[in-house]
Design a protein around this nucleic acid. Structure first.
Length: 591
RNA sequence: GGUCCUUUAGCUCAGCUGGAUAGAGCGCUGCCCUCCGAAGGCAGAGGCCAGAGGUUCGAAUCCUCUAAGGACCGCCA
């Protein structure tokens, strides 16, 4: 059990949460005083920044939400609530407006306090939303048959940023990669490597259909030659296939790890599909479903509209996924008794559940959309609906160069790899740009535009804001003004009283709230958009110093300068936190 | 035939899980450097939130239907 003090320590300043708590307390007081009826739910009461700054600093919908259940007029509730709130020193004004909004104006010292929190509290913005719950984020999970391509890159960045975001919001996060090393495509890979192996021995080989012709296997063939010499030359498949499956997938996974490392992604767990076969683990998972009466033998209807040419009704072992919201039941065993791909997937998720995760997230490409319902159904069934599975689908990335589609690759020939992209634009740009679109929206990635140095380019724009702060601090230091962390943390922030400066602080105050919303919705792109807004506010404030010199950060008076620099330093700190979640290194200068 | 996703300014997209007069960038028009980096900023023009119903104090947001575009749909993973 946590003490209130622990909670406070784990929950750095979130002004919106604080004020919402105050509103709820006031409402409870109104219930005690008999103004409001008992038994009302305050769950839908929100405290939000108003759309229009002229409406005040924060707005609550309490009166409108409670009007119907309490059978009162919104206006009456709002008036009573306003009177109660005004008893708190933090509330300077509370006005009823519109259909029943209560607009609040908060004391300036509160906003100044946010600046201080951002500077002195390294955990500013972190949240205990997750409460230490264990959550598993599975992403990338590309077949170990070749290098990662652009599509994987988006999944990798999205999954990694989501994992960081959830950790920031107080979850115990595991980053996981599922290696599809159990299926037939690994045989194809092994045979392809064998061809490269023969080639390394000077033989002429032909890559027929059903083999992987990519150059990236050449070195694997050579490595195999170095390892086994000519032991496998002119030998039948039985001799080398099993060995080569291992050798080839190991080589591919080493390459994939390198690709991920170049992007700054590192996994906690690599889970092998193969480890599920021959160990009874698939059988255990299916048996669990069977014990719940969800496995039966039957024949599926052919899909309507598009009848496959070689369709014939076959009896299969089916999972009754329709009990958990799927459209049709799904086969787990083929008519010849072999497992379908779905069976090991069920076993894999069963394994995650037994590892004690409270929540599971799968990050997949949009082409896996048809798979979502059945997997959710399986997880619901296996966990008795105790574990929620969220599946995030990432839409396609259209790689462009100067407005034209870009498809060439040096390494793979047919598709552009993750390594190609990172080499061309760097990991920071790659990561940020991949998060400038919602995951389920298609993304154009133009390798010219994303390296452009203009506000057209969000990465650059955010980095520029950060660099400007550092530049100002360097200038201030040259002018003999102390701007070290300790000095700024102790600055007299009451000197920040211009509306533009308070507005800047208010933007900072949104950060903890944004983290919670982004974490709750599993949408890391919100962080990227917030950072853009924050940078925009920063640039605007900077430029206002051109017209109004009292807004310039460096002033004759050292104390005033330190207060102003504390403000922009706080902006810089929050940018660092945000970029940290996205996995991007903040800039201290532009070159 | 079915499932899922998308549809918001000329273009590319946000929109805080139902809130007030729907926002940003690009493009267009006009301004702002003797001054912390103008690689910026300010202002203006530009909207039937695909369409039609419904739910309620209130809808771009939730429900139903329709239209357009994309992904997927037993014996591949």
């Amino acid at each position: 059990m946590k003490t209130p003090e622990d909670t406070r320590r784990n929950c750095p300043m979130n002004l919106f949460a604080d004020i919402r708590a105050l509103v709820v307390t006031s409402l409870e007081g109104m219930v005690q005083a008999g103004v409001l009826a008992e038994g009302l739910s305050f769950d839908n009461v929100t405290v939000e920044p108003p759309r229009d700054a002229s409406h005040g600093d924060m707005a609550t919908n309490a009166a409108m939400v409670l009007a119907k259940p309490s059978k009162m007029k919104p206006r009456d509730i709002a008036d009573a609530l306003a009177a109660a709130l005004l008893n708190d020193p933090r509330i300077e004004a509370a006005d009823v407006a519109g259909p029943g909004f209560l607009n609040l104006r908060l004391s300036k010292s509160l906003w100044q306090g946010v600046v201080k929190s951002a500077l002195v509290d390294a955990q500013f913005g972190q949240s205990n939303l997750g409460g230490g719950k264990k959550i598993n984020v599975e992403y990338v999970s590309a077949n170990p048959t070749g290098p990662l391509h652009v599509g994987h890159t988006r999944g990798a960045v999205f999954g990694d940023a989501l994992a960081s975001l959830l950790a920031y919001a107080g979850y115990d996060v595991t980053r996981e990669y599922y290696i599809n090393d159990g299926g037939g495509q690994v045989d194809v890979l092994a045979r392809s490597v064998y061809l490269r192996y023969l080639e390394a021995h000077g033989q002429q080989v032909a890559f027929e259909d059903g083999t992987y012709p990519g150059d990236y296997l050449i070195e694997v063939g050579i490595a195999l030659k170095d390892k086994v010499g000519d032991a496998y030359v002119d030998q039948p498949e039985e001799v080398w296939l099993a060995e080569l499956r291992l050798f080839a997938t190991d080589a591919m996974m080493a390459m994939i790890r390198d690709d991920l490392a170049a992007l700054g992604v590192s996994m906690d767990v690599f889970f092998s599909e193969k480890s599920l076969y021959g160990t009874g683990r698939i059988e255990d998972a299916i048996e669990d479903l069977r014990s719940k009466g969800l496995i039966y033998t039957g024949t599926l209807e052919p899909p309507k509209g598009k009848l496959p040419e070689d369709w014939e009704p076959r009896e299969q072992t089916l999972f009754k996924s329709t009990d958990y919201g799927d459209d049709v039941d799904r086969p787990v065993q083929k008519s010849d008794g072999a497992w379908t791909y779905f069976a090991p997937d069920i076993a894999y998720h069963y394994d995650k559940i037994t590892r004690g995760f409270d929540g599971l997230i799968d990050v997949l490409g949009a082409d896996h959309g048809g798979y979502v319902k059945r997997m959710k159904a399986a997880v619901s069934a296996l966990s008795d609906t105790q574990v929620a599975l969220d599946i995030k689908l990432c839409q396609l990335v259209k790689l462009m160069k100067n407005g034209e589609p870009f498809k060439m690759s040096k390494r793979a020939g047919t598709f552009v790899t993750l390594a190609d992209v990172v080499e061309m634009v760097g990991p920071d740009v790659t990561r940020f740009v991949m998060l400038t679109r919602k995951n389920d929206a298609p993304l154009d990635f133009d390798i010219d535009k994303v390296t452009e140095q203009s506000k057209d380019n969000p990465v650059w724009y955010v980095q520029y804001a950060s660099a400007r702060v550092h530049q100002v601090m360097r200038k201030a230091a040259e002018a003999g003004i102390a701007v070290d962390d300790a000095t700024l943390a102790g600055a007299d922030l009451s000197l920040l009283d211009h509306a533009a400066e308070i507005a800047m602080a208010q933007k900072l105050a949104e950060w903890p709230r944004l983290v919670e919303v982004a974490a709750r919705t599993h949408e890391p792109h919100r962080v990227a958009f917030y950072l853009y807004d924050l940078a925009s506010e920063m640039h605007s404030l900077y430029n206002r110093g051109n017209d109004d010199h009292s807004l310039r950060f460096i002033q004759d008076d050292a104390a005033v300068s330190q207060a102003k620099i504390a403000l922009i330093r706080a902006v810089c700190v929050v940018i660092s936190h945000g970029l940290g979640i996205l996995g991007v290194t903040p800039a201290t200068e532009m070159r």
